[in-house]
């Protein structure tokens, strides 16, 4: 848990800020621009910043399988995200989004949410991105268009991103520091799995005759939550899907006489 282990508690450690700043600079360089993008410098900066962040995040406690997997997935997810943001070719960007989704799925798996991993991948990688690839194929058969080679205010966008991420990290660090000093609610956040979970595991993991159930308890628990606490939202999500489907059909219908010539 010692992402911010070293250094004085309560002080912003400037390594993070520098790492983020270099990353922002890298993304700025990588973003498409009419002058051509500085791919090499940008890639080096971005990867360097990413590596630095990973290094800073490495705990002194040593290397375990889980740490390794976490860093792998996290780094790949972030690289994929950077690709999505900076790729000139929209189709490639869409594919790199698939990578993000898969890596986030991996992280979810590490967080003991296998069902969500599957759902996330199926919905995003399997449905959303694929359909968008279709649209891209329909729309941009000639490859990336003029607009893809330009970005809107890349400098301001990167600056905003830098400021936002820096303040988010700073706040997280503050809480983490306080938690490490034994103060505050974030301690509760970092507490090991709560008693509740134990109870759930003890009571629900076995059948009536004492045999362990199938290993997919996450799904069991999730299902139980969905049909108790979250029953109403489930119904609402159903209504929403109906409206959206009808809406998509409504929009896609070619209405006579409504097409506007550009």
């Amino acid at each position: 848990m010692e992402l911010f282990a070293a250094g004085q508690p309560g002080l912003f450690r400037f390594e993070y800020f520098f790492a983020l700043a270099i990353g922002a600079l890298g993304i700025y360089l990588l973003l498409p621009s009419p002058r051509g993008k500085a791919s090499v410098a940008g890639s080096i900066a971005t990867l360097g910043s990413l590596g630095w962040l990973c290094f800073l995040g490495l705990a002194p406690g040593g290397f375990t399988i889980e740490t390794g997997l976490f860093h792998l997935f996290a780094a790949l997810a972030l690289v994929g995200a950077v690709f999505l943001v900076t790729q000139t070719n929209p189709a490639r960007a869409a594919l790199s989004f698939v990578m993000v989704v898969i890596c986030v799925g991996g992280l979810m798996l590490l967080l003991a949410a296998p069902f969500l991993m599957a759902a996330n991948m199926i919905v995003y990688a399997g449905a959303i991105v694929v359909t968008f690839l279709f649209v891209l194929m329909l729309a941009q058969q000639d490859g990336p268009s003029d607009a893809d080679n330009r970005s809107r205010e890349p400098g301001l966008a990167c600056f905003t991103g830098l400021a936002l991420s820096a303040s988010l990290l700073l706040l997280l660090q503050r809480d983490q520091d306080n938690a490490d000093r034994g103060l505050g609610q974030m301690k509760a956040l970092n507490a090991p799995v709560a008693e509740l979970r134990l109870k759930q595991e003890q009571t629900l993991r076995r059948e009536a005759n004492g045999r362990p159930t199938a290993p997919a308890d996450n799904t069991t628990f999730l299902g139980q939550t969905l049909y108790t606490t979250l029953l109403l939202p489930v119904e609402l999500a159903g209504a929403l899907l109906l409206v959206a489907t009808a809406g998509a059909i409504l929009i896609a219908q070619r209405r006579p006489g409504t097409e506007v010539t550009p």
């Binding site: 973003l31 999505l84 943001v85 929209p90 960007a93 869409a94 968008f132 649209v135 891209l136 729309a139 268009s145 607009a147 893809d148 330009r150 970005s151 809107r152 205010e153 890349p154 301001l156 966008a157 990167c158 905003t160 991103g161």
Partner: peptide, 8 residues
């Protein structure tokens, strides 16, 4: 903020 392609 930066990309101009609607799909992106």
């Amino acid at each position: 903020l930066a990309r101009r392609n609607m799909i992106l």
